[in-house]
């Protein structure tokens, strides 16, 4: 099972994501923003970082890269895409996901181990979790406050498309404490916390993030 990770200029967590895929049992495939070649991967991850220095708006410039043309087209046909942190911001800028990520309410860059609950397990990236399961994975961002219109918020809640929700104090002012969402079809998921940084005890606060990378394998085998 080939899973791609896109490196944009300024990506930081691309290597961690590649490693998480390997630990999950998949075959990691590095992809490059400047090429529209998806190298026959069966799913793709947009990693965290500061692509294009977060200039203009986070993700705003990466969204127009050649690889994103291929990803947007594929995603509209059901291809699984996971955006983590900056990747989530890129997915919102691409309009593959609704809403936007804005400056944290207290203006701080937050780096912390965060408890979140997995609210939607019907996505290719979360099917190995139990609904309502509480997990601890790191957040590290300055623009993680999820904002959208009242109408969009209602739609996300009514359709069960909130994938992750912060537990305890809302760290950044996100509407309804939303930490991750999916598109209508469920194949595109964006999360602010970093599952790829919680895959083994040595380097993370837990192994709670690993299920993101085993879920996608289960999804593919089940097809």
């Amino acid at each position: 099972m080939r899973i791609g990770v896109v490196t944009f200029p300024g990506s930081l967590d691309d290597r961690s994501a590649l490693r998480a895929i390997e630990l999950g049992g998949g075959t990691p495939v590095p992809l490059f923003h400047g090429s529209n070649d998806l190298k026959e991967v069966q799913a793709v991850i947009l990693p965290g970082g500061f692509s294009y220095g977060d200039y203009l708006r986070c993700g705003a410039i990466s969204r127009f890269s050649p690889i994103m043309e291929s990803i947007i087209l594929a995603a509209e046909h059901g291809f699984p895409v996971l955006g983590i942190c900056n990747g989530f911001q890129i997915l919102c800028e691409s309009h593959l996901l609704p809403g936007a990520l804005t400056r944290n309410a207290d203006l701080h860059f937050i780096c912390a181990d965060q408890k979140v609950s997995v609210e939607n397990t019907n996505t290719p990236w979360t099917n190995n979790y139990k609904k309502g399961q509480e997990i601890v994975i790191p957040i590290k961002n300055g623009e993680g406050s999820f904002q959208c219109s009242d109408e969009t918020l209602k739609e996300l809640e009514d359709e069960g498309r909130v994938v992750l929700r912060y537990v305890g104090k809302n760290p950044n002012g996100s509407r309804n404490a939303i930490a991750g969402i999916s598109n209508k079809r469920g194949n595109v998921v964006g999360v602010m916390p970093h599952p790829e940084q919680a895959i083994e005890d040595l380097t993370g606060p837990s192994e709670d993030g690993l299920n993101f990378f085993t879920s996608i394998l289960k999804e593919m085998v089940g097809r």
């Binding site: 804005t102 400056r103 944290n104 309410a105 207290d106 203006l107 406050s145 904002q147 219109s149 002012g173």
Partner: peptide, 14 residues
């Protein structure tokens, strides 16, 4: 400009 209904923490800090 951010839409009026969107929280602007930078403006608030100023």
């Amino acid at each position: 400009m951010l839409k009026p209904e969107i929280l602007d923490p930078q403006g608030q800090a100023v």
